[in-house]
């Protein structure tokens, strides 16, 4: 049984026919060709497949596409604006918060959601928000520093 769904992905509306058991990440990567979102554990643990659904983080590998029907999805490809990286992305580069890079899209999406909600997030809040994303290269310090450096300071 295939079902037609509508997804607004990075500001563009897409229609797709999916099986009830198709996951969101399959639609993103295979149907829409948005391969920036990576897949790893398949169990919601590692965080590499994190995307935003209506501005909130979700594991796209365990989210059925039919359940995302009609929702607003943001992937790592949707962060940059007019070809410019966001301050958070720039900061990841500047701080060396990227090594192999496999986990980076997930960290960027998680931190983007945090900063949208708490532009003045404290360091403990940053650490807490990132607790569900695994990085096996950097040891987290540089990632936390990169996020902290773009927190809005009271002027």
């Amino acid at each position: 049984m295939s079902i037609e769904i509508t997804l607004e992905v990075n500001g563009r509306t897409h229609r797709a026919r999916v099986e009830p058991t198709t996951t969101l990440i399959e639609v993103l990567r295979e149907t829409l060709g948005l391969t920036g979102t990576n897949k790893d554990c398949g169990m919601g643990i590692c965080g590499v497949c994190t995307v935003l659904v209506n501005g909130r983080t979700a594991s796209s590998c365990i989210l059925l596409a039919v359940q995302a029907d009609g929702e607003r999805i943001t992937t790592v490809e949707g962060l940059e604006q007019d070809g410019h990286l966001t301050p958070l992305q720039e900061s990841f580069l500047r701080f060396g918060a990227v090594q192999c890079g496999y986990c980076t899209p997930g960290f960027l999406m998680t931190a983007t959601a945090l900063l949208a909600e708490k532009p003045r997030a404290t360091r403990p809040e940053i650490v807490d928000a990132l607790r569900g994303n695994i990085c096996r290269c950097t040891g987290y310090k540089k990632i936390v520093e990169a996020v902290e450096s773009v927190v809005a300071r009271p002027s």
Binding site: P20, T21, T23, G42, M43, G44, S59, C61, I62, L63, L64, V66, Q67
Partner: peptide, 25 residues
């Protein structure tokens, strides 16, 4: 399926291949 998380994992692990999903979300 409510949040669908548990089922998503079971499917990825190939422990379940559902024949009918009733989405209550």
């Amino acid at each position: 399926i409510a949040g669908g998380i548990a089922l998503g994992i079971l499917m990825n692990e190939k422990l379940v291949s559902p024949t009918w999903l009733v989405d209550i979300s």
